[in-house]
């Protein structure tokens, strides 16, 4: 819901977040896409950032190949692959229950995520003065809440802070959308830190 509301208050038509919810079905990449476009960034930058975030689906596919089904069903099964379905499937022991958990969770998300986005979009378009209600604080808060669990890891937290600082420093000078991509320059920091730890 907050995703739909955020998208509409940043200037998207109501159907855009809903359509994207059905077709992409991967929350963080959709937030990233909407955020970069809303800040005035180019669609290319938004596409690249979204694809990079979704690259994690490749290892997901390596982890749960046997729950996807066969033939036509496999197409839908593949589309349902995301953070939640993979976690639910991995939590079950027997193959039969793995499959059931994966499909139940996946179909639930396929319905609830776009429906929530539509409801949020509706609410977002009714409200006129979004700044007075502080709705612009919702978007960054959602992203922060999404990544906080990962930030409990210390080397990752430091690297992420550096990445955020890099993006902030670059914001006044670079076209919108690029500062976020520039944050990836902090990636070597993480590899150096973890390698040091490994050799110690």
């Amino acid at each position: 819901m907050s995703y739909g509301a955020v998208a509409v208050t940043s200037g998207f038509a109501w159907w855009f977040p809903v359509l994207m919810g059905v077709l992409v079905l991967a929350a963080s990449s959709e937030f990233l896409f909407v955020g970069i476009i809303a800040a005035g960034g180019s669609p290319i930058a938004a596409l690249l950032a979204g694809l990079l975030v979704n690259a994690r689906h490749l290892p997901f596919g390596l982890a749960v190949p046997d729950v996807l089904g066969r033939g036509r069903r496999k197409m839908l099964g593949t589309h349902l692959m995301n953070d939640e379905t993979v976690v639910f499937a991995l939590a079950q022991d027997e193959p039969e229950r793995k499959r059931a958990a994966y499909w139940l969770c996946g179909l639930g998300i396929l319905i609830c995520w776009p429906a929530g986005a539509a409801l949020g979009a509706l609410l977002g378009s009714v409200v006129r003065d979004t700044d007075a209600l502080g709705l612009d604080a919702m978007f960054p808060a959602v992203i922060l809440a999404l990544i906080l669990p990962a930030l409990k890891d210390k080397p990752l937290r430091r690297t992420a802070l550096t990445a955020a600082a890099l993006a902030l420093t670059a914001t006044p000078f670079l076209p919108a959308g690029l500062p976020v991509l520039l944050a990836l320059a902090a990636l070597p920091l993480f590899t150096v830190r973890t390698r040091k730890k490994a050799t110690r």
Binding site: S28, F31, L32, G35, I36, A39, G40, A49, L52, V53, A55, R56, L58, P59, G134, D136, A137, F139, P140, I143, L144, L146, I147, A150, L151, L156, T159, A160, L161, A163, A164, A165, L166, A167, L168, T171, P172, A176, P179, V180, L181, L182, A183, L184, A186, L187, F190
Partner: peptide, 29 residues
């Protein structure tokens, strides 16, 4: 891959929380 996703999202959270049109937004947000 996992780390780069977190880095991109952290940068997005920071820039969308602190900046608007290439400049600092007020402290309220």
């Amino acid at each position: 891959l996992e780390v780069s996703a977190v880095l991109l999202l952290a940068a997005l959270a920071a820039t969308s929380a602190l900046t608007e049109d290439h400049a600092f937004t007020g402290p309220a947000r």
